[in-house]
Structure formats: structure tokens, C-alpha cells
Amino acid sequence: MADRTKIPRPRPTPETQHFWDGTREGRLLIQACNDCGHVYFPPRPFCPSCSSRNVDVLEASGDATLYSYVINHRPHPGFDGPYAIAVVTLAEGPRMMTNIVNCDQTPDALQLDMPLKVTFERLTDDITLPYFEPVGDAS
């Protein structure tokens, strides 16, 4: 049985704190550049595309598609294996690593480009992790 306390805990920095404040409130926050329009993740207080410091935080829709994944078969104390380590593409463009929850961890159930929706799991008082789950009545 997975021991969720064995999941590595993110330690926020001043540049990423807004992201972790957001997930705690059930919001997925990304950033956008006011000068060139680039939407990006992971967080930083300037635009990685044009170097402008004129950037804003914005709330993502939470809609995403499955970009790629592996199903890890080696035992991890924080997970019931085998489990998929996935990368999803947000509707807004940026990609993020995640796990696909409420879904069988099999190649049949995990089809690339399937639509996904963000969901959150509280890990500690400070850290809530964003995960993604299939949209609709997929397994």
C-alpha cells in the first residue's frame, strides 16, 4: 500500500509560492507575458521568451491532453505500482509532469491525446498537488 508521506515534498521558493498558494485553493496558476503574450510554466518572475519582467499570473482552465508517459514498474514507496508518470499539455499551451488519477494505469486506458481535467490532492497543510483525470466516463 502506498505511503503518501513518501512522496517528495516540493519546497516553494518566492518565485513559485503563488503556484502552491493556488493549488491549495484548487486553482492551477500559470503565467503570461504582457509584452509578447507568451504563456509559460514553471513559474519565474520574467518571460523566458522575451526577457520582460512585465508578467502576470493567470488561472488555467484545467483542461489538458495527454502528451506522453511511461508506466514505471519499479517500486516507489509513495505509489501503488505500476504507475504512470505523465506529461500533459494544458489548453493554454504549457506542459507539466503529473500523474493520471482515477484511471487504470495501463496502455489501453492511457491513450495519448485523451482529454483530461485537473484535480487536486492535499499532501500537507502547505502542499496540494495538481493531478489530472480523464474527462467523461473513461475508466
Partner: peptide
């Protein structure tokens, strides 16, 4: 644990190169 990889990848259970280097291939 404060690096971007530690914050935004490690919680999802990658265990070194065999479960990370391989993610793009599908």
C-alpha cells in the same frame, strides 16, 4: 527540494533515468 525539477517533477514519482529519459518515446 526547492529546484524546479524537485517541485514540479519529483512528486509524481520519477525514479531516475529509466522512468524519465523514457517519457518522450510514446
Amino acid at each position: 527540494s526547492a529546484s524546479l525539477a524537485a517541485q514540479f517533477e519529483s512528486p509524481y514519482g520519477p525514479m531516475g533515468p529509466p522512468s524519465m529519459f523514457t517519457i518522450p518515446v510514446l
